[in-house]
């Protein structure tokens, strides 16, 4: 072995190797300790396995499952509330649309009623106006006829007077005939 050779060549003066000599080379290869290590390792592993499989893992699994459940429930509740909110909004929108339609309908009805009244009133007024206009027309025609007759009389008189004044002798019949001819022409 190397350590023995070094012992022989360097003796006890080498402190480092004196210490190394007392150590059993690599402790990992000290086979006499293996049964001990394996025994205690197996004990440890069995204890850890039992603790984990009996207590720790089911408990943590349950906690995680419970949390998952809570989250799922909360999400479902939130989904429900959201759906309700959407429903409420829809109902609100529908009511709004209904109200708007109703308002438009009422407005249209009212407008139609007013239109009917207006039309009636206009027709009545038109008729009245037409009647009044016809009356006036008649009166004007009468007045015009009266005026023509008066004009003829005045013209005849005036013409007779003029003829007399100019020194002639007024023949009433001739004057009247002349005036008539002139007025027609």
């Amino acid at each position: 072995m190397a350590t023995q050779t070094q012992d022989a060549s360097h003796g006890a003066a080498d402190a480092a190797h004196a210490a190394a000599d007392s150590a059993p080379g690599m402790p990992q290869l000290a086979f006499e300790t293996f049964p001990n290590q394996i025994f205690w390792l197996l004990v440890t592993l069995v204890v850890i396995y039992l603790v984990l499989s009996r207590v720790a893992l089911p408990r943590i699994g349950a906690i995680l499952a419970e949390r998952q459940g809570t989250i799922t429930n909360d999400l479902a509740a939130a989904e429900d509330l959201k759906a309700k909110a959407v429903e409420a909004e829809e109902a609100y929108n529908k009511a709004l649309a209904d109200a708007r339609a109703e308002a438009q309908r009422i407005a249209a009805e009212t407008r139609a009623e007013i239109q009917v009244g207006l039309d009636e009133a206009i027709a009545k007024a038109d008729a009245e106006i037409a009647a009044k206009a016809a009356e006036s027309e008649k009166a004007i025609a009468e007045i015009r006829a009266g005026a023509l007759e008066s004009i003829q009389a005045v013209a005849t008189d005036t013409a007779g007077e003029l003829v007399t004044a100019l020194g002639g002798k007024a023949d009433a019949k001739a004057v009247a005939g002349a005036v008539q001819t002139r007025m027609k022409g």
Partner: peptide
């Protein structure tokens, strides 16, 4: 090894 067992218990059992 015993300390390792205690550490496992502390981490996974006591804390939960």
């Amino acid at each position: 090894l015993g300390f390792a067992i205690l550490a496992v218990i502390a981490i996974l059992v006591l804390s939960t």
